[in-house]
Design a protein around this nucleic acid. Structure first.
Length: 872
DNA sequence: GTGCCGGACCCGACTTTGCCGCTC
DNA sequence: AGAGCGGCTTTGTCGGGTCCGGCA
C-alpha cells in the first residue's frame, strides 16, 4: 500500500474500526512537512473582525452607565448652584446697573411683550459680556471632554487595570464580564486618588466637591469653562430669572470607529507613529495587556505641566492636539445656560464663555455642522484632533432639579445623525432605555411652558433640512428613501398618492409617516389575533420563508408544482386591512376546535364567546373524566430544531362548566397531594427501618467477632476467608464504621405539612420500630425491643443471635443483605428523601452496587423536625 | 476630508401542531 | 393495553447592523 495513500485514507476516513493491514514502509523515504505562515493567513489576521457580541454589549453597558453618571453629575452641579450663599456672593459681585436692567423689565413699565423680550435679551447679553470679558477667567483645562472607549481602556491598562475587552474575549458566554471585573478591581483598590484618576483620563480634571468649592472659584473668578457656565447659571438664578443648567452629556460612545484614525498608507516611519499605531491596534485585539507589559508606558507626570505620556492614547495626536487644540473659549461648550424670556415665552441659550446669546446652532460641535466663531477643531499640522465634544444627549436642568431633553434645539442634524445616536430606528432597546432614563429626570407634571417648548422643538425638527447624504436618510425620523425600506414595509398610499417631498440624487424622498409595516395573514392572527378582511388584496408579495421542516416541504412541493417558476410568494397586509378575529362561540357547552382538535388562543381576544380559559396543568384530564366538552388551548409555539411545538396551557371550556371543573380539579389536586404525602411517609418510615436494621447488624457483628479479631493474626485481617461463605465481610470494621447521627444544626426550612417521622433519639426510634410491622421479606432480623439500647451488647435480639440454630454466619448476613438490597431496589425511586446518609455502611453499599440508589441526603435533613415537601 | 459602497461577519427574527420508547 | 410523559433532535435561512477598506 502506498504510504501516502494510506495516510490520506486515515485522515479522510474517521472510522476507527477499519482493519489495518501491516505493510512494509520504505525506510529511505521520509515525509517532511514544513509549515509556513501563508500570506493569506497574514491577510486574514490583518483583516479586522467586527466587534464580538460580548464586546459590543460591554461597550453599550459602559456607555449607558457613563451616561447616567454624567447625568447625575449634572444633577448635582445643578443642585449645588442653588446654594443661597453662593448666589448671594455672586450677586454681590455683579454691578448694580446690570442687576437693575433686569428689574426694569416689567409689565407695568413695558407693556409690550415683544419689547420686554427684546430688552431681556439685551440685558442678558450685557450680563454675559460682563461675565466673559471682565469677570470670569476661563482656564484652558479642567472641562469635561469626550473620550473614546479605547482612550479610557488604554488609560485603565496603563494604571494596571485589566483590559475591558480582554475578559470578554476569554469568556464570551458571560455578558459584559469585563465591566464587572473593572467594577470589582475598582472596588478592590478603593484608594484611587485624583492623580491616578487624572492619569487614567489623561486629563487635569477640576475637582469640585461641594458648593464651597464653587464659591471659592467664584471668589477667585477663575475656573474651567464648565465652571464658568455653572456659576453664570447660579448668577442668573440669583437675579430671579428662570434659568436652566444645560449639559451636553459626553459619555463614552459605544461605536468602535469613533475618533479612530483611518489607516494611513505606510509612507512614514517614526517611533512615535509606530507606538501610536501599535497602541491603537492593540486596543481591539485584546492582547494589549501583554504589550503593555513588554512596553511599559512611561509616565511623564512628574515633568508636568501637562500629562503627556509616551505610548499613551495616540500620543502624537494627543500632544499635538493638546498644543494646538483651540481654546475652550472659542469651541462649543459642554455646559451652558438657558434663561427663560418671559416676554417671548421661550428659552434663550447663553454661552457665558463665548458670550453667545440666542444662537442655538452655535452649540453643535459636530465638525461639518457647526461653524463656531473661532478656529476649527483641527491642529495646524494637519493632524486631526480627536473630537472632544460630541452632541448626543442634551439635558437642561431646572432650578427644581428636574430636567428636559433639549437635544432637538441644539443639534443641527438631529434627524440625520443625533437621533440615531439616541437610538431611534435601530438597536431597539436603546431608545427605550433613553426614554426610561428621561422619565426619571422629567418633571412628573407639565408646565405650560413645557408644552410651548415641545411645540418649538417639534417645529425645529420639522424645519430641519433634508440630509445631504444617503446614510443620513437611513432611519431618519422624517424622511425615507425607498432603498431603505425593509422587506415588510411599503409606502402607503402608493407613491402617486403619497407625494414626493423631493428628490435626492434622483431618488424620490417620501415622508416617514407614509411607511406602513406589513405582516402576513398568519402573522396577524398569531401576533395580534387579527384576520385579513374579506376581499383585501396583499399590498406586497415577498418570498415565502420556511422556518420549519413542514413548511419547507410545503414550499418545495409548491415549487415543483408551480411549473418551475421559481419562488413561492407570500402576501403581506397592512393593519388597516385586518379586523379582530371573532372565534365561533361556545354553543350548548360545545367548544369549537381547530383541525388539530384544540383551540388557538394566542391572545386573550381569541377566546370564544361563552367560553373560559382554565390554564392549569392536568385540567384536561379532569374535564375528560367529568365528560365535559373542552379544547386544549394553544397559546404559543416553541421552536426547536425547525419544528414548531405547540405550547398548551390548560383548556377552554364552557362558562357554565367552569365551576364544576374547577371544583373537581381542586379536589383532585388535594387528593393527589394527600396521596403523595402518604406515599412519602411510607417511604421514609421504610428507610428509617432499614437504617436501624443496618445498625443492628453492625452491632451484632461487632459483638460477635470482637474477640475473634483479637485472636486473629493481623496479616489476615484484610484477606477474605475463602473457606467460608461470606468471607468477603471479614474486614467488616472497614465497611461498618462507628455511626454517629448528625446533629441538628441546620435551620428549619419553611413549614410544610409535618411528617414527624424522624425519631429524636435512638430510643424513640427503637420504639417506632417496635410498632412498625416488619415483614419477613424485609430483613431476617426482628426490630429492637423498645426497652433496650441499640448500642449495648444486650440489645441483640435473640433472633439475630442464631440463624438456623447456629451462631449467625457472615453468609447469612450476606443473604439478608442481598434480600434487603433487592427489596431496596424494588422500593427505589429517584426522589430525594430524608434519610440518614453518612453511614459508611451505606456509602460502601452504594459503591458496591451501582444500581443501589438509596436516597442518602445530607445530614441537614436527618433530624429536622419538619421535612420539606418536594413539590411546591 | 468626507461619504459611498461592497464585503465580511455577526446576530436576531422568522418559522407556527413529531416520533418513539418507557412507565404506570 | 393504552394513555401519558419525556427524551431526542442539531441549528436552518434571511435580513439587518456594524465595521472596515477602497474608492470617488
Amino acid at each position: 500500500m502506498d504510504p501516502i495513500n494510506n495516510s490520506t485514507l486515515s485522515s479522510d476516513d474517521s472510522d476507527d474500526e477499519l482493519d489495518w493491514e501491516e505493510v512494509e514502509v520504505p525506510r529511505a523515504e521520509h515525509l517532511e512537512i514544513t509549515l509556513q505562515p501563508k500570506a493569506t493567513s497574514t491577510k486574514a489576521s490583518t483583516k479586522r473582525k467586527g466587534l464580538s457580541h460580548t464586546e459590543r454589549l460591554t461597550r453599550i453597558h459602559c456607555h449607558k452607565i457613563h451616561t447616567i453618571c454624567l447625568i447625575a453629575n449634572g444633577w448635582i452641579r445643578n443642585h449645588w448652584i442653588n446654594d443661597e450663599l453662593l448666589q448671594a456672593r455672586l450677586l454681590s459681585l455683579t454691578p448694580l446697573p446690570l442687576q437693575n436692567s433686569f428689574a426694569m423689565i416689567h409689565k407695568s413699565r413695558v407693556p409690550d411683550a415683544a419689547r420686554r423680550g427684546y430688552l431681556f435679551e439685551a440685558s442678558i447679553t450685557r450680563l454675559a459680556e460682563w461675565w466673559s470679558e471682565s469677570f470670569f477667567e476661563v482656564t484652558p483645562e479642567g472641562h469635561l471632554r469626550n473620550r473614546t472607549f479605547e482612550d479610557v481602556q488604554l488609560g485603565l491598562e496603563a494604571q494596571g487595570f485589566r483590559s475591558l475587552a480582554e475578559p470578554a474575549a476569554k469568556k464570551p458566554a458571560a455578558p459584559a464580564p469585563a465591566f464587572l471585573e473593572l467594577i470589582q478591581s475598582l472596588h478592590q483598590s478603593p484608594t484611587i486618588d485624583n492623580e491616578t484618576l487624572q492619569d487614567i483620563l489623561d486629563d487635569d480634571g477640576e475637582f469640585i466637591r461641594t458648593p464651597k468649592s464653587l464659591m471659592k472659584h467664584a471668589l477667585m473668578r477663575k475656573g474651567s469653562r464648565d465652571l464658568s457656565a455653572q456659576l453664570f447659571t447660579a448668577l442668573c438664578r440669583s437675579l430671579g430669572i428662570p434659568t436652566r443648567l444645560v449639559v451636553s452629556i459626553q459619555s463614552v460612545p459605544w461605536q468602535a470607529n469613533i475618533n479612530k484614525p483611518k489607516a494611513k498608507p505606510r509612507t512614514k516611519k517614526g517611533k512615535g507613529k509606530a507606538i501610536e499605531s501599535q497602541a491603537s491596534s492593540q486596543s481591539l485585539n485584546g492582547d494589549l495587556k501583554e504589550q503593555a507589559k513588554s512596553n511599559p508606558i512611561i509616565k511623564l507626570r512628574k515633568q508636568k505641566p501637562k500629562g503627556n505620556r509616551l505610548g499613551g492614547p495616540s500620543p502624537a495626536a494627543s500632544s499635538s492636539a493638546r498644543n494646538h487644540i483651540p481654546s475652550p473659549s472659542v469651541t462649543p461648550p459642554v455646559f451652558w445656560t438657558e434663561v427663560f424670556s418671559r416676554g417671548d415665552g421661550r428659552w434663550l441659550a447663553v454661552d457665558p464663555v463665548r458670550c453667545i446669546v440666542n444662537k442655538r446652532k452655535a452649540f453643535d460641535p459636530s465638525p461639518g455642522a457647526s461653524a463656531p466663531p473661532g478656529p476649527s477643531s483641527f491642529g495646524s499640522l494637519g493632524t486631526p484632533a480627536p473630537q472632544k465634544n460630541r452632541m448626543a444627549y442634551v439635558l437642561a436642568f431646572e432650578e427644581d432639579g428636574y430636567a428636559r431633553d433639549v437635544t432637538r434645539r441644539y443639534a443641527r442634524e438631529y434627524g440625520a445623525k443625533v437621533s440615531k445616536v439616541q437610538g431611534q430606528g435601530r438597536g431597539k432597546g436603546r431608545l427605550e432605555w433613553w426614554n426610561r432614563v428621561l422619565s426619571i429626570v422629567h418633571r412628573p407634571y407639565r408646565l405650560h411652558r413645557d408644552d410651548i417648548e415641545d411645540e418649538e422643538l417639534d417645529a425645529n425638527e420639522m424645519k430641519e433640512a433634508m440630509p445631504t447624504t444617503i446614510s443620513g436618510f437611513k432611519d431618519h425620523p422624517l424622511y425615507v428613501l425607498t432603498r431603505h425600506l425593509h422587506q415588510n414595509q411599503i409606502i402607503y398610499p402608493e407613491p402617486p398618492d403619497t407625494p414626493e417631498l423631493g428628490k435626492f440624487r434622483g431618488e424620490p424622498v417620501y415622508p416617514r409617516s407614509a411607511v406602513v409595516d406589513l405582516k402576513s395573514s398568519e402573522n396577524w392572527l398569531r401576533s395580534e389575533g387579527r384576520v385579513v378582511k374579506a376581499g383585501c388584496q396583499p399590498l406586497k408579495m415577498v418570498k415565502a420563508r420556511s422556518g420549519t421542516v413542514n413548511k419547507l416541504r410545503e414550499i418545495e412541493t409548491l415549487k415543483t408544482a408551480g411549473a418551475g417558476n421559481g419562488e413561492v410568494m407570500q402576501g403581506l397586509y397592512a393593519r388597516g386591512q385586518t379586523e379582530m378575529y371573532v372565534p365561533p362561540p361556545v354553543i350548548d357547552g360545545i367548544v369549537p376546535k381547530n383541525n388539530f382538535g384544540n383551540i388557538d388562543l394566542y391572545v386573550p381576544s381569541m377566546l370564544p364567546r361563552g367560553g373560559v380559559h382554565v390554564p392549569f396543568k392536568g385540567v384536561a384530564k379532569i374535564a375528560r373524566q367529568l365528560g365535559l366538552d373542552y379544547a386544549e388551548a394553544v397559546t404559543r409555539f416553541d421552536f426547536k430544531n425547525r419544528r414548531a411545538l405547540p405550547v398548551i396551557e390548560g383548556v377552554v371550556i364552557a362558562v357554565e362548566n367552569e365551576d364544576v371543573l374547577l371544583e373537581a380539579y381542586w379536589e383532585a389536586e388535594k387528593e393527589a397531594e394527600e396521596k403523595a404525602h402518604k406515599q412519602r411517609e411510607e417511604r421514609v418510615v421504610k428507610r428509617w427501618k432499614r437504617l436501624i436494621q443496618a445498625l443492628q447488624i453492625r452491632q451484632r457483628l461487632q459483638n460477635q467477632y470482637q474477640n475473634t479479631h483479637d485472636e486473629m493474626p493481623p496479616a489476615d485481617h484484610h484477606q477474605p476467608d475463602t473457606d467460608q461463605a461470606g468471607g468477603f465481610l471479614v474486614g467488616a470494621d472497614d465497611v461498618v464504621q462507628p455511626f454517629h447521627l448528625p446533629r441538628n444544626f441546620h435551620p428549619v426550612l419553611p413549614s410544610y405539612p409535618p411528617l414527624n417521622l424522624v425519631p429524636k433519639s435512638m430510643k424513640e426510634l427503637a420504639a417506632r420500630m417496635d410498632t412498625t410491622s416488619v415483614t419477613a421479606d424485609d430483613v431476617s432480623e426482628s426490630p429492637l425491643p423498645p426497652e433496650t439500647e441499640a448500642t449495648t451488647d444486650q440489645a441483640m435480639p435473640k433472633s439475630t443471635r442464631t440463624h438456623n440454630g447456629k451462631a449467625l454466619k457472615l453468609g447469612a448476613t450476606r443473604s439478608s443483605a442481598r434480600v434487603s438490597r433487592q427489596k431496596r431496589k424494588k422500593d427505589n425511586d429517584s426522589e430525594d428523601e430524608s434519610m440518614a446518609s453518612d453511614s459508611p455502611l451505606l456509602k460502601k453499599r452504594r459503591t458496591k452496587g451501582s444500581d443501589e440508589s438509596m436516597p442518602v441526603p445530607s445530614s441537614s435533613r436527618v433530624l429536622r423536625p419538619r421535612l420539606p415537601r418536594r413539590e411546591a
